[in-house]
């Protein structure tokens, strides 16, 4: 039988727990957050932790607090990346980082962020029908955030409607930087499979080296969410979805011919399997489909309807 080679151990030295805790402690503010914030309702839960609404004891601007139990985090060093990225990179389409606390006795990490009262884009795509003008507006705002991150050598790697937050005024912001990767000069490609299966690009699922254009593919899948309410293959298991992406490439889109020519072309430019031919964020921001974007205020009725639903 063919000798199966063991996968070479990753050269990148894995950080020890102490190094990670030290890294987190250096990034965190001193003091106990429970003395500064009153935590109220739970907003949601994700792979890395839970998000709560909270109010500062002094002042009245509502905030969102993501609390993460450090004992069961698969890749703790990624938390350091998340905080560093959120602390360093500021943009109007990125959820604003406010503060972070490291509770060593409970080995918990609290990240305090701005609160967006419109909720996640997921609720809007699953509960309401978006028109092309609204899809263009949301897409443009997300592309602006991605264009900024990519210009800083950062890939988000987990673009999906769950990680796009909305304000009641129609503001659109990207969040959840726990899994983003920083591309340093010599290492401008990554290989670890990170993200959510249904939104993953073909080069990720087939374990090839990948770069920033994985975010462009996921944006294309998110446009399908805005059209159909969910990504392709969500009714299948994650493994089958990954198999379909690897073998089929560009997914079928229902009533694709009914979409405007501009939107059809825009989707084709994002869901291009060949990475070199796939568009980047610069090209997409200049695409004529962006001119169809309606005023962000037109998102408000969708958000209200989604909340009622």
């Amino acid at each position: 039988a063919e000798v199966i080679q063991r996968r070479p151990k990753s050269q990148k030295k894995n950080m020890s727990d102490d190094e990670i805790n030290e890294g987190l402690r250096s990034l965190a503010s001193p003091g106990d957050p429970t003395s500064k914030y009153t935590v109220s309702k739970k907003l949601g839960a994700g792979a890395s932790g839970c998000v709560y609404m909270a109010k500062p004891k002094e002042g009245d601007a509502v905030v969102a607090i993501k609390s993460m139990d450090l004992t069961n985090q698969p890749k703790k060093e990624l938390l350091i990346t998340e905080i560093e990225v959120m602390k360093t990179y500021r943009h109007q389409n990125i959820v604003n980082f406010l503060d972070c606390y490291f509770l060593s006795e409970k080995s918990e990490l609290w990240v305090v962020m701005e609160y967006l009262d419109g909720g996640a884009l997921t609720d809007v795509v699953t509960e309401t029908i978006m028109n092309e003008g609204q899809i263009a507006a949301v897409t443009r705002e997300c592309l602006q955030a991605l264009n900024y991150l990519h210009s800083k050598g950062i890939i988000h790697r987990d673009i999906k409607s769950d990680n796009v937050l909305l304000g009641m005024n129609g503001s659109v912001k990207l969040t959840d930087f726990g899994f983003c990767a920083q591309l340093s000069g010599d290492n401008s490609k990554r290989q670890t499979m990170v993200g959510t299966p249904y939104w993953m690009a073909p080069e990720v699922v087939s374990r090839k080296h990948y770069g920033k254009k994985v975010d462009v593919w996921s944006m294309g899948i998110m446009i399908i969410e805005m059209l159909e309410g969910e990504p392709p293959y969500l009714n299948e298991t994650p493994l089958k979805a990954i198999y379909r992406i690897a073998t089929k490439g560009k997914p079928e889109i229902k009533n694709f011919e009914k979409l405007s020519k501009l939107l059809q072309n825009f989707i084709d430019r994002t869901l291009e399997v060949e990475v070199d031919t796939r568009a980047d964020t610069d090209e997409l921001l200049l695409h004529d489909f962006m001119k169809c974007a309606k005023d962000l205020k037109t998102l408000r009725p969708l958000i209200v309807a989604a909340k009622q639903a």
């Binding site: 792979a47 698969p74 499979m193 990170v194």
Partner: peptide
Amino acid sequence: AKSKHRYQRKKRYTMVGSPYWM
């Protein structure tokens, strides 16, 4: 129905590295 709902929600969770089923 609750466990089905929980499974549906878990499908949208982020994955880091290859999971057990790969």
